[in-house]
């Protein structure tokens, strides 16, 4: 068989860069779904919201999109905490999270998307920055900065999160919420407060992921839907709530999608994540690295 090495290597490199970005989008879901068991299917909508905030300040004031997203993180954190508070009072406390709680997030996803359509329309929007356009070349491999910068930012975000959950008191309390309620009581912390902080944090990561998304590709409001299957596939494949597992699963999905797009055509790429999800559910529901 005559495989073009040039094409193959470039596809793998692009896939790895893309995978790191997927990891950033999934990081928040890894916290909310993986650790708190909250099926926040509206997460991609918050990511798109992040993209439009980056777009708005970039186009009007010329600020760097990544910088905007870092400044937006506290706002997203508060937004996330507020959403959790509503979710807790209306559903979790009444034991109705499985039906009405899911419908609630679905409603949020939908309301966010339609609001963005009404405000910004359905045209594709993009940001401007010095690193959008040029590429660096290593041998035959071509690394566009438009992909490389988001990849590095995503890895930084991921490392930060991993350090936070393993090294700080609140981070360890978040891990305990998912695994050991008793330990949490012994640590004398209020589980609801911890969950509120954790959910706020998960939404805060969406601000960054959104900015990275609009650097990588132009977006319109319904782009977020393509990410729902992807993020949950990565989250399940990586083993729920495991940060390193999530990163590896994201890289894997990125590479497979990139290879699919290169050799079969980009219109097939969205199906890859679903295939991954179904195969994982069928054969390894505990994830790649689960027992």
């Amino acid at each position: 068989m005559d495989i073009s090495w040039d094409l193959l290597l470039n596809a793998i490199a692009a896939g790895l860069l893309l995978g790191a970005f997927y990891a950033a989008v999934t990081a928040g879901v890894s916290i909310s779904f993986g650790m708190l068991d909250i099926v926040n299917i509206a997460h991609p909508a918050f990511v798109i919201l992040g993209s439009y905030i980056a777009y708005f300040f970039n186009i009007n004031f010329g600020v760097d999109p990544i910088l905007i997203s870092i400044l937006a993180m506290p706002v997203f954190f508060l937004l996330g905490s507020a959403v959790y508070q509503v979710y807790y009072l209306s559903f979790e406390k009444r034991g109705q999270e499985s039906l009405r709680g899911l419908a609630f997030f679905f409603g949020l996803l939908f309301v966010t998307e339609v609001t963005l359509i009404l405000v910004f329309g359905v045209d594709y929007r993009y940001v401007e920055a010095a690193y959008i356009g040029p590429s660096i070349h290593i041998g035959i491999v071509d690394l566009p900065l438009r992909m490389l910068v988001p990849c590095l930012a995503a890895l930084a975000l991921f490392t930060g999160l991993q350090l936070f959950v393993t090294r700080t008191f609140i981070g360890r309390a978040i891990m305990a919420v998912s695994q050991d309620q008793l330990a949490l009581q012994l640590m004398a912390v209020d589980p609801i407060r911890i969950k509120r902080i954790a959910f706020g944090l998960s939404i805060a990561t969406a601000a960054v992921a959104g900015a990275l998304l609009i650097i990588i590709q132009p977006i319109e409001p319904s782009v977020g839907r393509e990410y729902i299957g992807r993020v949950f596939a990565i989250c399940v494949l990586g083993g729920l709530g495991s940060m390193p597992g999530t990163l590896i699963a994201a890289m894997l999905l990125g590479v497979v999608e990139s290879l699919t797009a290169t050799f079969y055509g980009p219109s097939w790429a969205p199906a890859v994540s679903f295939g991954f999800l179904l195969l994982t559910l069928a054969f390894r529901p505990a994830g790649l690295f689960g027992r």
């Binding site: 299957g229 055509g265 097939w268 994540s273 529901p285």
Partner: peptide, 27 residues
Amino acid sequence: LTLRLRGSFFAIATLALAVVLQTLVVN
């Protein structure tokens, strides 16, 4: 495929199903 596992997996899988079937039909 999904109902033997935790309840939320079914919901997630149906969400992804729409995207994938659309991909299949488009192609």
